[in-house]
Amino acid sequence: MKVKKKTIGLLIYFAILILPIYWMLNMSLRSNADILASFALYPKDITFVNYLKILTDSSWYMGYVNSMIYVFMNTVIALTFALPAAYAFSRYRFLGDGQMFFWLLTNRMAPAAVFALPFFQLYSTIGLLDTHIAVALAHCLFNVPLAVWILEGFMSGIPKEIDETAFIDGYRFPRFFITIFIPLIRAGVGVTAFFCFMFSWVELLFARTLTVTAAKPISAIMTRTISTSGLDYGLLAAAGILTIIPGALVIWFVRNHLAKGFALGRV
């Protein structure tokens, strides 16, 4: 009986969670005139005109490609750099380790709003403006510390005896780390990659500031189109729905991995 009540509560919560997204889906399948003319709980004449417009216009769909490129780059960079550092924090005591760890975290706390301008100057000075790598590097500011933080938790869950045994067996560090240690925490790597993907995908301010046309992310293209052509709710909703799809796909593919990572209780 008690279990039932819990499940019902959870189902209601999930329904509330999905409702706003459903509403956007509903809007995206109607034309703007139809939306403004009448209120309807579901689209009566389904039209794909909004989606067609986005998927056939390269100034729209290139935004998705750009976003995906820099998000992927950022995830790879963040993981590559964070893995050894997380190992150091989980296994060693060294000069200034506590301070270093907290300093890393403080970088998540900097107000992006004003860092945007110095970033713009920095990246135009070194000639990386409007490239995917610029956005990927800028997102490292908050993703690398987060990756170190999460990975450190997973690594601390692996007993140190494993390292000791491997070193006694004559493994050198790089080989031990890549062939033994990383496979042991692969669920943790999966969870970390997911979080890096997520925070890079949803960030707007840096991505918008550092790009002009060649690497412009979809979320910035949305705001530009809205401001110039008035509010076309149908088109806006369709673009919004399309920004959800890559994330939804990623989470669908890693869901079992994620569940396993969560089962280890290290996030």
Partner: peptide
């Protein structure tokens, strides 16, 4: 139920932040 719940829970987190604002205007 575990992975289904995780997927549903993670959904709002994967939406770009300005799109969140857009969703709630429309909603």
């Amino acid at each position: 139920g575990v992975s289904t719940s995780l997927v549903i829970l993670a959904l709002p987190l994967l939406i770009p932040w300005n799109v969140i604002g857009t969703i709630w205007i429309i909603f």
